[in-house]
Design a protein around this nucleic acid. Structure first.
Length: 710
RNA sequence: GGGCGGCUAGCUCAUUUGGCUAGAGCGCGUCGUUGACGUCGACGAGGUAACAAGUUCGAGUCUUGUGCCGCCCACCA
């Protein structure tokens, strides 16, 4: 017997050796798998953000997906698990900015190319680290197909999609109000905004004959329209367009009455002034009535000239001063000191979102969402757990246009070109000069036919989710690659429930739009991994669990099965260290079972092993059937628990104990051990493979056939 | 304001279409093991399944309501 087996199980030595064995077999790559495998099984791994190291959530992703893939591989499918890394635009830039801060530097004022290059280097270093960590988790993914969101072919696909959207009128450049973070100096989509409840003073102000109310008096300088609902009888004496002279913050102004049904009659006094540049509702009213829009606050959050004496002040500093001035002019009617309301903040830094009007690229989402809804409602995509379907449908039904422009360096540049404002037409082309103003969407820099002026490329980059939203078909080489034809649509998208809108819903929409097919047939969503006390992990709380710490302490197999047992899809998991430790004992138990069985089976041949049929093997087959059923229904937590329970409390405690007294049982042990290893392999791949190597040198459990079910 | 989850043993959670004395891990108690066991085994304590009503031969599981806890969405200035 191999002396290794005589010692307790040593995960460190084993895991490295076994992973190498698998990798060198080439069987992570579906093209190398033995036998005639007609049916593909595909999972595209959610690309890991290349800005840090693996956290516990990644540990769960790698475990669940590896279980699915190993199971299907053993069942004879042509399995592809395609790994990848994400440049993670804004997220990564924020991480890098923090690093710059530590060095006393800042991205503002930095040469763009220099910053880009530095972040690229940063992600490349991280990527290497992350890949080695994913391997430590035992992930049997095809590294030969590994993708990065900034690979040339991915960017090419993203550009093609954008061009198609533009041609179809679904991507448009709009001068619209967007959510702006004055700290990060970029706009966001609606999903990156966090609502926060605050209690602040609320001011009722005298505005001519009206009383208006606001929590932000420092934004009101330019308010020169007074709006009310057209049906509001209280104000029926005022006509739309009527001018009213009144005294305002910085002196007398002429206000214009506007009637618009967006005004809520029930709220406050039923009248409000509008600040179209910095408020979405007000912007809507201004658009409908073709009103002036004036910027009051600049991109850094400071007041502009329109604020008069307050010019240059940051809005936070300006508020008390403006209130003071309003008070001295007698314009404050009353103050509600404890007004509870919702403010929008940057999800990253908590800075108040200051809406601004900007030229940005938007995607018209309604048409895309309708197609997605149709497919989802037809059941072409199965959600696990099911309630995520409802959540998705609800979101899709109320979808708004998607702002995909980001004012950051780290990302895929938007391939749109604009003409400089002034141009001199080429001789004979004077009549066509208006065509110069057209926006050109193209990868290559366009050359103007009509004049000699240069085109300038859009300085923004895409929202990172715009590129990752195309991940399933982009990674497979859309549109005419062999992989795309063979592996698309993919089978399962397994990811965190948290990013169902950010990523999953968008993949469905973009996948359908570009390829005409759903990108995956099943969505499996796991919950959050929390700390042992059930608290959300965060760096500031200092309760972040490093999965690699646990794998090195207890072995990867123990970590993996510890994350699975008792963890149902969609629900969050409190990761207690004791739990993992318990499964380390289990690993050792299996190791010892193997030692005992092998010590007592030296006289057995394979033929004999296969010939056995009795009550014990029949009982095992029943278990295998049960477990297979659970696997097919994504109940990995049940499957794992049943195998665990069988191996320890039936096989070891009873069958093996009995065999010490009853020689007749011994011939069954090898059968049970071998097939138990198969059932357990997706969950605990290292130890099962290591034992299998002792039993059948030269074989490979990873590609062994899953127990047949009658 | 709208929506979605959860409430089961001291802790963390299971319990597939309603059906045998509601289970596991950790923790706890007693006893025993050092020739498969970095331990393990045997036995045990511990639950009115948030609460109330209903449907049913039968409900942790279905319906309704109530109460907590959590999450998501939302242009009430």
């Amino acid at each position: 017997m191999n002396p290794k087996l005589l010692k307790p199980y040593d995960p460190k030595e084993t895991e490295e050796r076994i992973y190498k064995l698998w990798e060198e077999s080439g069987f992570f790559n579906p093209d190398n798998l033995p036998g005639d495998r007609k049916n593909p099984f595909t999972i595209i791994m959610p690309p890991t953000n290349a800005n840090g190291s693996l956290h516990a959530g990644h540990g769960l992703v790698m475990t669940i997906e590896d279980i699915m893939v190993r199971y299907k591989r053993m069942q004879g499918f042509k399995t592809l698990w395609l790994p990848g890394l994400d440049h993670a635009g804004f997220e990564t830039q924020v991480v890098y900015e923090k690093q710059l801060e530590k060095e006393g530097r800042t991205r503002f004022g930095m040469e763009k190319n220099q910053l880009y290059k530095e972040i690229l280097d940063f992600t490349l270093i991280n990527s290497k680290n992350i890949i080695s960590q994913i391997k430590k988790m035992g992930a049997s993914c095809d590294w030969s197909r590994n993708k990065f969101t900034l690979d040339d072919d991915i960017i090419k696909t993203v550009y093609q999609t954008f061009e198609k959207l533009y041609r179809d009128g679904l991507a448009y450049r709009g001068n619209r109000i967007v959510s702006w973070c004055s700290k990060h100096q970029t706009s966001f989509s609606d999903l990156e905004i966090k609502d926060e409840e605050r209690v602040e003073p609320y001011y009722y102000l005298q505005y001519g004959p009206f009383t208006i109310s606001t929590s932000r008096p420092e934004t009101k300088f330019g308010d020169k329209y007074i709006t009310m609902h057209p049906d509001d009888k209280r104000y029926s004496q005022y006509k739309d367009g009527q001018k009213i002279e009144l005294e305002w913050i910085n002196g007398p102004i002429t206000a214009t009455v506007i009637k618009d049904s967006a005004v809520d009659m029930e709220f406050g006094t039923g009248v409000m002034t509008i600040t179209p540049w910095h408020d979405p509702i007000d912007f809507g009213i201004a658009e409908r009535h073709n009103l002036d829009k004036e910027q009051v606050i600049d991109e850094k959050g400071k007041l502009l000239k329109i604020a008069g004496e307050f010019v240059g002040l940051h809005i936070n500093k300006a508020r008390p001063l403006v209130v003071e001035k309003l008070k001295s002019k007698g314009l404050i009617v009353r103050v509600d000191e404890k007004y509870k309301h919702i403010v929008h903040t940057c999800y990253k830094c908590g800075t108040i979102i200051e809406p601004q009007i900007k030229d940005q690229w938007f995607i018209k989402m309604k048409p895309l969402a309708e197609k997605a809804l149709e497919k989802i409602e037809k059941g072409e995509i199965i959600y696990i757990p099911e309630h995520y379907k409802k959540i998705t449908v609800h979101w899709l039904e109320n979808i708004m246009d998607w702002n995909i422009s980001r004012q950051i360096v780290w990302g895929i540049p938007i391939p749109a070109w604009y003409h400089e404002p002034k141009c001199i037409p080429k001789p004979g082309r004077e009549n066509e000069i208006s065509k110069c103003k057209e926006i050109i969407v193209s990868i290559e820099k366009p050359i103007c036919e009509f004049c000699d002026t240069d085109y300038m490329q859009d300085t923004d980059t895409f929202d990172t989710w715009f590129s990752s939203g195309q991940w399933p078909f982009a990674t497979l080489g859309f549109s005419n690659s062999k992989d795309f034809k063979e592996f698309y649509p993919t089978d399962i998208m397994e990811t965190a429930g948290e990013i169902i809108f950010f990523w999953v819903a968008r993949m469905i929409m973009l996948g359908l739009y570009v390829t005409g097919k759903v990108p995956f047939k099943t969505v499996y969503l796991h919950g959050l991994v929390l700390d042992a006390k059930g608290q959300k992990m965060s760096k500031s709380k200092g309760n972040v669990i490093d999965p690699l710490l646990y794998t090195s302490k207890y072995g990867t197999d123990a970590f993996r099965i510890g994350m699975i047992v008792g963890n149902t899809p969609g629900t969050s998991l409190a990761l207690a260290e004791d739990r993992i430790r318990g499964y380390k004992n289990f690993a050792n138990k299996i190791w010892n079972i193997a030692r005992f069985v092998l010590e007592n089976s030296s006289h057995m041949s394979d033929m004999w092993e296969n010939a056995i049929k009795n009550d014990l093997t029949a009982e095992f087959d029943e278990l295998a059937k049960d477990v297979t059923f659970d696997m097919d229904n994504y109940r990995f937590h049940l499957a794992a628990e049943k195998i665990y329970h069988y191996i320890w409390h039936r096989f070891a405690d009873e069958i093996i104990e009995e065999s010490k007294k009853n020689e007749k049982i011994k011939p069954s042990l090898l059968y049970i051990l071998k097939n138990s290893l198969k059932l357990l392999h997706p969950f605990m791949p290292f130890i099962t493979e290591a034992i299998y190597q002792e039993m059948y040198p030269g074989g490979l459990l990873m590609i062994e056939e899953w127990p047949k079910i009658k």
